[in-house]
Simulated assay, not measured.
Amino acid sequence: MNDQIDPEDAARALSEIGRRREQVIRRRAIPGWYWWANAVLMIALTAAVESRSGVILGIGITLFVAGSLVIHRPVSRAARSAPLRRGLVGPGSVRRSLVGLATLLVVLAGVSLATLLSLKAAGVPYPATIAVAVTAVVYAVGWQMLMRYETAILVRRSRSQG
């Protein structure tokens, strides 16, 4: 009996392991629709608050909570079903992710404040709703970019460990 493994079979097996590892990493990434759905909920809630009507505010809060629960469920299930190996996320990955997150949060705050203050100064009606709408677009696009960046970091690190 020959215990030798054919190099081609070993290469195919290692390639398949790498492909499946990358598949798990990509599955864990949050889908783009999630960020847009959150953006719509933020805009609707802000419009309800800015309406200054108790009934509309109550409906807005109810829809915001219900919508949040509905959109978070499938995303949290997918994230739990594809746990990442502890060694995959190293200190360099965490540092890069935190820098990206901090940058996104500063950009969101800046866009929001600049838009809101400009609209208020110009006397535009419903300035908060418009400012949140502008910020929500940046939020949805920015989070998707950050998720792609973090996924690329994890895939690169996975390949280097494989």
Rank of each mutant, 00 (worst) to 15 (best):
R85I: 04
L154D: 06
P125H: 09
V94L: 12
A11C: 04
V24K: 07
L88G: 02
V75G: 04
G142L: 05
V107H: 01
S158D: 14
F64Y: 12
A39C: 07
H72L: 05
A66D: 00
S93N: 14
I17Y: 13
A78L: 09
Y126S: 14
V89A: 11
R157G: 08
M42L: 15
V99H: 09
R157Q: 15
T103S: 13
E22G: 08
S68G: 15
G54W: 09
I130F: 14
A133M: 08
L69V: 15
H72V: 03
I61A: 12
G32W: 13
V106N: 04
D9W: 09
G100L: 08
V155P: 10
R27K: 12
V49G: 06
L101P: 00
R28G: 08
G92A: 14
L101C: 02
D6N: 15
S93T: 14
A37P: 07
H72D: 12
V65S: 07
Y149S: 06
L146M: 13
L117K: 02
A29D: 06
I130M: 09
K120Y: 00
A140T: 03
W35T: 04
Y126F: 09
A128M: 10
E16P: 01
Q23L: 13
L63M: 11
Q4D: 14
A13D: 11
W143S: 05
R77A: 08
L69R: 10
V132T: 15
L63Q: 06
L69E: 01
A140Q: 11
Y149C: 02
V137Q: 03
V49C: 04
L84M: 12
P31D: 07
A82H: 15
A78V: 12
I30G: 02
T62W: 00
R19T: 14
V107G: 10
M145R: 13
G110R: 03
A47Y: 15
S158P: 03
A121S: 14
A79H: 13
N38A: 05
A66K: 05
V124I: 14
R21F: 03
V141C: 01
L105Y: 08
D9M: 07
L105W: 11
L101K: 02
V99M: 11
L104M: 02
Y139G: 00
T46K: 03
S112G: 12
L63E: 03
M145W: 15
R19H: 14
A109V: 07
W36H: 07
N2R: 08
G90P: 01
G123N: 07
V55G: 00
I71H: 04
L108V: 09
I130L: 13
V124F: 15
A79S: 05
V111W: 10
A48W: 08
V70D: 05
S93C: 02
L88H: 04
S76D: 11
R77E: 11
V141L: 14
V124D: 01
Y34S: 04
L57K: 09
V124T: 15
Q144A: 02
G142M: 12
G162I: 08
R20G: 02
T62P: 05
V134H: 05
L69F: 11
S97H: 04
V99S: 02
S160G: 03
I17V: 15
I5S: 02
G123A: 00
L113N: 09
S160P: 00
N2K: 06
A39V: 01
I130T: 10
L69G: 15
T46V: 12
